[in-house]
Amino acid sequence: MRVGVPTEIKTDEYRVAITPAGVRELVDRGQDVLIQHGAGEGSAIPDAEYAEQGASIVPDAAAVFAGSDMIVKVKEPQAVEVAMLEARHILFTYLHLAPDAALTEGLRRSGATCIAYETVTDKNGRLPLLAPMSEVAGKIATQAGAFMLEKPLGGRGLLLGGVPGVAAGKVMVIGGGVVGLTAAEIAIGMGAETYVFDRSIDRLRELDFLLNNRCSTVFSSTLSIEKLLPEVDLVIGAVLVHGAKAPHVITREQLKLMKSNAVLVDVSIDQGGCFETSRPTTHTDPTYEVDGVTHYCVANMPGAVPITSTFALTNATMPYVIKLAEHGVHAALKSDPGFLEGLNVAAGEVTYAPVAADQGLTALAPLDALDRIPAVA
């Protein structure tokens, strides 16, 4: 199979979907790899390192799409990339389709087979291709929130960890998954008074153990959130519903409860955001203010640390890329129910039920969709 890797073109995105080690793994298995010129530069990987492992360097994205059977990316395809997709293509990347009806429609019209990193599951129901970026995003969320609390950046003028004789700031983390856990670890490490909210008692017990009882765990409800909001300096939204839009856990009305120049960081923004007042921002222009509260809603937080993120991501994705390349989409997905859950769009139809539900569409069963895909895919 011919595997193509284009340069990421989303604003402030510096990651790349394959490393030289990944190229070597594919080439040793008889696969062809096409890399767009400069695709790895943002992650400090020059073209020469790819070429040394057997990749062909091509001049532009058009050459990648024209010459490849499978396109491997990091972020969702932008409009110009969607226009280059064909029914013969397999697209393997983060998609986050639930809040983006326009992208969903574009992928349907392309006829391509589109597999989303974020909905692939393992045998335990976990999200192995989302987890590494969730770990990075959780750590960035606390770092960024602490930075945005500084007065020159519009914050309250508070040092999150405090100093002897001056109380530390308070951090509320809503959602106790991978993002929430790592965000809490950093907040605790900074010395902040930290609270983690979740709706699973079992998960709260795990968090107590994993965080060595160094923070308060709270059962998440509207009232419990409202009671703490007036006290906190930083709120990190880390809510995840697999593949679906994130629910709003803080409304605009509730912003009135917060301190002036407090900070909200919405890590759920890729899935529509978990604060009513959230809208996507970029690393270049990361914040905006609503009712006296600073909002940080960067949609690709891990893109700010591409050397770390690229290697963390590709460590997780590479076995799946190899499986698709060696066995083809039919055998690869049919042999692994968790991998099959990654199928979001195929044969012109949405195949992931939560996305279809959020967009008022009818989902086609994934196995039925696979039967409609030509064997060459």
Rank of each mutant, 00 (worst) to 15 (best):
H283T: 13
P374G: 07
A48C: 04
G161K: 04
Q31I: 04
I250S: 10
A102P: 06
A363Q: 13
K245V: 13
R156Y: 03
S224R: 01
V173L: 07
V241K: 11
G42A: 01
D122R: 06
F92K: 13
Y320G: 14
A184H: 03
L234M: 07
A375Y: 04
S43P: 11
V82A: 08
G175V: 15
E8R: 01
P337R: 03
I57G: 01
G106E: 00
E49W: 15
V23M: 00
L240G: 02
G243L: 12
A369Y: 12
D32K: 11
Y195V: 10
Q254C: 00
I174D: 09
L367V: 13
V232Q: 06
A304N: 12
G348L: 07
L107S: 00
T282C: 14
D47I: 04
A63G: 14
P20Y: 04
Y288P: 02
S220A: 14
A101L: 11
Q143I: 02
G175E: 13
I140T: 08
G40T: 10
L159F: 14
M1V: 11
M258N: 01
T317V: 12
A87Y: 11
E25N: 13
M318C: 03
L240I: 10
Q359C: 08
T310L: 01
T222E: 15
D368V: 12
Q78W: 09
C274P: 05
A55G: 06
K151Y: 12
A238I: 04
L343G: 09
A112E: 02
Q53C: 06
I188K: 05
R126C: 12
S260K: 12
E52G: 07
Q271E: 10
E185Q: 15
T113P: 02
L370R: 07
M258W: 02
P77G: 10
G165T: 06
R156A: 15
